[in-house]
């Protein structure tokens, strides 16, 4: 199979020892998008919400305070960079590490808000993310054990086997749990309702982009033809 039937023509590779970064228009676009959003997050202020006060006719402005703002911005930038890395890496284990990092900083971004409901969601999300590391790394390990390589460009040449299919299913479960916001926690509105939209954006961005990238990886691993 040729990589160019998935993401378009190969534009170039950056070999960093074992880890080979490769660029097709598809990877490059998502890489650029992740970096563009990260830059915007780094320079943006947060929005403030105006709420009606209970019992009076006054309004109250809810803002992100400075210490919380600093730590959340830092975590959001790390998350953006990890997402950008996960978009172009040509190494399966590298990809899983990036995904695990994304999950960790996403929990951090949510957990930095000092509200009971939000902390509750962060705790549950954290549990799922921790549980999901097992299938995530386990899947990558099974693929390594059965194919003998975790370089995606080499996995392209390796014929299908049941163990690779099994490994990639585990990998998919792992990714779904790690970037759990879109599939599992979308209903947890508390997480998205708090002020600090740039930081919440990166949670959503990282989970969607990683899912899109995972689909490319699954198609590389399991060749239907």
């Amino acid at each position: 199979m040729d990589i160019s039937i998935l993401g378009g023509q190969m534009l170039g590779i950056i070999p960093l020892g074992d880890i080979v970064l490769y660029f097709t228009p598809f990877n490059l676009f998502m890489f650029a998008a992740a970096l563009a959003f990260t830059t915007l997050i780094a320079i943006s202020k947060t929005e403030s919400q105006v709420e009606a006060e209970f019992g009076t006719l006054k309004n109250r402005e809810v803002k992100v305070d400075k210490s919380e703002f600093k730590i959340r911005r830092f975590l959001a930038i790390v998350c953006g960079l990890a997402t950008a890395g996960a978009m172009v890496t040509g190494d399966l284990f590298d990809f899983t590490l990036f995904v695990a990092l994304i999950a960790i900083v996403n929990i951090g971004i949510v957990a930095a808000v000092k509200e009971v409901d939000v902390l509750d969601s962060a705790f549950q999300y954290g549990l799922i993310a921790m549980i999901a590391t097992l299938p995530l790394f386990g899947g990558a390990a099974i693929i390594l054990a059965s194919a003998g390589t975790i370089s995606l460009l080499q996995l392209l040449q390796i014929p299908n086997s049941t163990m690779i299919l099994y490994g990639s299913l585990l990998l998919f479960i792992g990714v779904a749990g790690e970037t759990g916001v879109a599939p599992f926690f979308a209903t947890k509105a508390e997480m998205f309702r708090t002020p600090g939209s740039p930081f919440l954006l990166i949670i959503h961005l990282s989970s969607l982009l990683v899912i899109v990238r995972t689909i490319e990886i699954l198609l590389i691993l399991n060749k239907p033809f």
């Binding site: 998935l6 993401g7 998008a33 959003f37 954006l201 959503h204 961005l205 969607l208 899109v212």
Partner: peptide
């Protein structure tokens, strides 16, 4: 590539967000 559209659509959801 159609996969690129997938990425574009995902980012469209993020813009809505």
């Amino acid at each position: 590539s159609l996969l690129l559209f997938f990425a574009i659509y995902a980012i469209h959801k993020i813009v809505e967000h």
